[in-house]
Amino acid sequence: MIRFSVNGERIETSVAGDTPLLWFLRDNLELTGTKFGCGMALCGACTVHVNGEPTRACVTPISTLAGKKVTTIEVIGKSPIGKKVQDAWLSEDVVQCGYCQSGQIMAATALLTKTKAPSDAQIDAAMSGNICRCGTYNRVRAAIKVAAGASKPAAAPAAKPAAKAKA
């Protein structure tokens, strides 16, 4: 029996200890926000927090989690920094296909939790393990700076004046 917590909920499980946290989350808890991309900690799509540390869930057997706290994309918006990051992701229109973005947001939140105003080099170091095939990287960087308060969010697109349309 392994005991740990996921998003504040106590977990007691007899699932095989070599099961990667990624598949425990997805298949056992049906928390599908954490994504499978490579299975080898090469792409970052499965990034979650374990005791606050950004962690690749695809190579983290649940046997290593005894007593630890796991946080996933499903609740990261409840933390003030996670919420800022998600808001910045929206204002900078970051997502395209969106598949890697759970991992990007978890990595960015972990970065900003430790480093309030990261430099470009610090962003490179923290985020280059998260692959995005849509190439949203410049927006990821911009959104991190917005979430850090280092730059202003892109203005909400202004509506064109509403004209009355005749039948």
Binding site: G33, I73, W89, V94
Partner: peptide, 21 residues
């Protein structure tokens, strides 16, 4: 008009359902 994506909120909070989900 520059228009933000309808699908973005679900893609930043993990609720968007992909085929794998």
């Amino acid at each position: 008009k520059p228009t933000r994506r309808i699908d973005a909120p679900a893609k930043v909070n993990g609720t968007a359902k992909f085929g794998l989900d």
